[in-house]
């Protein structure tokens, strides 16, 4: 972890209809840092994460990525999204493309890599996650865990500066959680900047440098994993942890 701030949000707010989901969120994510976001459902975790790459447009506040405010008119959001990989709860792999095509689509289309480079990179990534033999299969032949690992390397193929994980194991069968978490763990250990929204407290404790506890649209508390999980300061955090731990 370095002192360079990769992503920063300032007073982020977001409402859906009359419901205010984010009520002013300020965070800094440093280069190489792994942040876990925990908290009760409906507390704004996913919305917050989706604001970082502007899948949701914040109502007010700033999203600053690599020193640039990106949530303003005239910003080429696509250019920044190329540097922010995202992994979704429901995988969202492309069912009409083979495993390998899923990975090479974006790098080739966006001219980041030639077809040959992208293919080589895809094979290398598939090898690393143990799916090389599935390269010509369509995603319908994959298990949930395999789909999610594919979704992770699809994002990695763009060589992003940060990876955003939105409850990556919540839709998985229990026996497949481990294989996905180990891929994420390897990424974090390799120094990838990571923000992960998760309900896996053990995993959050093990891999993250810092845990944010979000509830009711604000960051209630943030600290190193051991501090936050074992010695929560805020009553709201204590109440939540007493229910889940």
């Amino acid at each position: 972890m370095t002192d360079t701030v990769l992503i920063e949000t300032r007073n982020l707010t977001k409402s859906f209809g009359g419901l205010q989901v984010l009520k002013g969120v300020d965070i800094q994510v440093h280069q190489g840092e792994a942040i876990a976001v925990i908290g009760p459902s409906g507390g704004g975790k996913s919305t917050f994460l989706r604001c970082l790459n502007l899948l949701e447009t914040p109502d007010s506040g700033d999203v600053i990525f690599e020193g640039q405010k990106i949530n303003q008119k005239g910003t080429d959001v696509d250019k920044y999204r190329q540097k922010m990989g995202m992994v979704f709860q429901h995988f969202n792999v492309f069912p009409h493309m083979t495993v390998q095509q899923n990975i090479t689509l974006a790098p080739v289309l966006l001219k980041k890599q030639t077809k040959a480079e992208a293919d080589a990179k895809a094979l290398y990534l598939l090898e690393r996650i143990g799916l090389l033999d599935k390269k010509d299969e369509y995603p319908r032949k994959l298990s949930g865990g395999q789909k999610q690992r594919l979704a992770i390397v699809r994002a990695l193929a763009m060589e992003p500066d940060v990876m955003l994980f939105d409850e990556p194991t919540s839709a998985l069968d229990p026996e497949m959680v481990g294989e996905v978490l180990s891929v994420i763990r390897a990424l974090v250990e390799a120094g990838m900047t990571t923000v992960i929204v998760t309900h896996e407290m053990g995993f959050a404790r093990e891999v993250s440098d810092r845990i944010l506890f979000m509830a009711d649209g604000v960051i209630v508390e943030q600290a190193a994993p051991a501090d936050l999980l074992d010695h929560p300061q805020q009553p709201r955090t204590q109440e939540f942890l007493s229910k889940v731990l």
């Binding site: 899948l55 995202m86 969202n92 689509l105 289309l109």
Partner: peptide, 27 residues
């Protein structure tokens, strides 16, 4: 077509047009 498909494509940096042509329309 599941909105998640569009979100995944856009999160990779694909433009609206690319997303439509390569991801949404084929499905």
């Amino acid at each position: 077509v599941d909105i998640g498909q569009t979100e995944a494509a856009r999160s990779l940096g694909l433009t609206k047009g690319m997303t439509m042509r390569k991801v949404v329309l084929p499905q």
